[in-house]
């Protein structure tokens, strides 16, 4: 636990985005990446991959992939924003699907609504080629581990 915590702090401070993803097997499996943008904070990116399809007839990305991508974005966003680098524990995740995920790249951005001593509330938004057409919005509560 301790070793990986120090390692994450090093990764974060060095802005080694890909290394942060490598640490989370599930994020690596989906093919998630992210980077820091000057004024808008972290931008998460899920490149299109045939293995993430949930419906071959439409076709559409699996709702669970969109949800998992957004949840993972929230975890990394929190860890990037907090002093402490202990991994937050998810309490609940609430997602509304507004459009089906077409077979193309998906993006997400997070907003920390409340960062309390023990609980954090994060909102996540996902879109594809058109930034104005949101394909899903989610909100999630996390338990923060007190050092």
């Amino acid at each position: 636990m301790e070793a990986s915590k120090d390692y994450f702090a090093e990764v974060r401070d060095g802005k080694n985005y890909q290394q942060a993803i490598e640490m989370v097997p599930y994020a690596k499996l989906l093919g998630i990446s992210f980077r820091e943008c000057d004024d808008e904070g972290l931008l998460f990116h899920l490149p299109f991959d045939q293995k993430n399809i949930g419906n071959t007839m439409l076709p559409a990305i699996h709702g669970g992939v969109i949800g998992g991508f957004m949840e993972n974005a929230a975890v990394i966003h929190l860890m990037w924003a907090m002093e402490s680098v202990t991994m937050p524990k998810i309490i609940d995740f609430n997602i509304d699907y507004t459009l089906s995920g077409r077979p193309e790249d998906t993006y997400a951005r997070c907003n920390i609504v409340k960062l309390g001593k023990r609980i954090a509330n994060v909102q996540i938004e996902a879109w594809q080629s058109n930034r104005d057409k949101v394909i899903a919005v989610a909100r999630s509560h996390f338990k923060l581990i007190i050092e």
């Binding site: 990986s4 989370v24 994020a27 709702g63 998992g68 993972n72 991994m87 995740f93």
Partner: peptide, 16 residues
């Protein structure tokens, strides 16, 4: 896995 130090499966897997 979602947590590299414990190996617990990611919440996203549960969503799927």
């Amino acid at each position: 896995a979602g947590n590299p130090s414990t190996g617990t499966i990611h919440g996203g897997v549960i969503i799927s």
